[in-house]
């Protein structure tokens, strides 16, 4: 009997697995019904409504996994932006009209940048809005205007094996939700696995590590805790009684300035690679959109050069 007790999970562990499974399953059923597909003689609008109700219930359960961040305003905005982004994501992939899909994707991007703002990343919030909502969505709309001539096309109303795709995607979501939602901060001295995890070294933050390890005299530890932008400064005085000015990383500079300093010193190669990538993509786009027609046997190369293109 004792052997079984060690192998089998406890009831609370089973509940921790089943509750996310229930929530994710509701969302999966709802999303499956909302995907465009023929389901016998059932009317699409009725199915879409039923799926929306099921997915909404699943979303309510999903929101129950979140925990408020404390103060009122961040809590309110976190819930607003999170719910909006998930609803927008569902409607992006279930809309019959690609234009509606693009607009719902814009709402996902806007709420995501709101979440960036809440996480103290104002530069990324602005950058995301400019890059996505400003350029990508407008260009997608342009392509849609170019391509939408036949109205409601067949392929927009028929999903490709929706049942299997839904099962696979929501299985991934269940795994992620289960592994993320069960990480709880336990009280100190808690010896259960989750309680220990909260005090594990892997979850210590870098500035916490500095308070724990920063007093040691090992230069390796001091270098590892310091951003490389500030390592080139002269080494700290060997006199241990002298006050050592240790940079603390965050709150050293205002947000965007700190990000820029980190990007152009610690991650200089990254910035260079990003520039090279943009350049290669530019060349690739120009090469793709203006293909030279192949010279086939039977066509005169001189004529091809003169006309520019020959229709086969």
């Amino acid at each position: 009997m004792d052997m079984w007790k060690e192998i089998l999970p406890s009831w609370s562990a089973i509940g921790e697995m089943l509750i996310p499974a229930l929530v994710v399953g509701l969302g999966a059923i709802g999303t499956y019904l909302m995907l465009p597909h023929r389901h016998g003689v059932a009317r699409p609008r009725v199915l879409f409504g039923a799926g929306a109700v099921a997915a909404g219930l699943g979303l309510l359960g999903f929101v129950a996994f979140w925990s408020p961040p404390g103060p009122v305003l961040p809590t309110v905005f976190l819930y607003i932006f999170g719910v909006t982004s998930v609803i927008g994501a569902v409607l992006t992939i279930t809309s019959r009209d690609p234009v509606a899909s693009a607009l719902w994707f814009a709402s996902v991007v806007l709420s995501t940048s709101g979440l960036f703002l809440l996480a103290d990343a104002p530069f990324l919030a602005a950058g995301t809005i400019i890059v996505y909502a400003g350029a990508v969505v407008v260009t997608f709309l342009f392509v849609i205007m170019l391509a939408q001539m036949e109205g409601k096309a067949d392929y927009d109303r028929a999903a490709r094996s929706p049942a299997m795709a839904t099962v696979i995607s929501f299985l991934v979501l269940w795994c992620l939700v289960y592994s993320v939602a069960t990480v709880r901060t336990g009280p100190p001295g808690d010896e259960s696995p989750m309680g220990r995890l909260a005090h594990e070294d892997a979850l210590h933050r870098s500035y916490n590590l500095e308070t724990f390890l920063g007093d040691s005299d090992e230069p390796v530890i001091h270098q590892a805790l310091t951003p490389t932008a500030q390592i080139s400064e002269p080494p700290p005085p060997p006199d241990p009684s002298a006050p050592v000015d240790r940079p603390s990383g965050r709150a050293e500079k205002p947000n965007v300035a700190g990000l820029g300093a980190s990007l152009y010193s610690d991650h200089l190669v990254t910035a260079g690679i990003a520039g090279a990538l943009l350049f290669v993509a530019l060349i690739g786009c120009v090469a793709i959109t203006n293909p030279r027609r192949p010279i086939r046997p039977g066509h005169d190369p001189a004529q091809v050069a003169a006309v520019g293109s020959i229709r086969p």
Binding site: T31, L35, F62, F65, W66, S67, P69, L78, G82, S85, V86, A89, V90, T92, I93, S95, P98, S101, A102, V108, T112, L115, A119, F140, V143, I144, A147, A153, Y155, D156, A158, A159, R160, S161, P162, A165, T166, I168, S169, F170, V172, L173, L176, V177, V180, A181, V183
Partner: peptide, 27 residues
């Protein structure tokens, strides 16, 4: 942090579902 990770996981899974199941190239 867990809230953010949950929202990110939901966006990732829903995007994966859309990529697997839709037929329109733009979507």
């Amino acid at each position: 942090l867990r809230d953010y990770l949950l929202i990110g996981a939901a966006l990732f899974a829903l995007g994966m579902l859309g990529f697997l199941s839709r037929r329109n190239l733009i979507v």
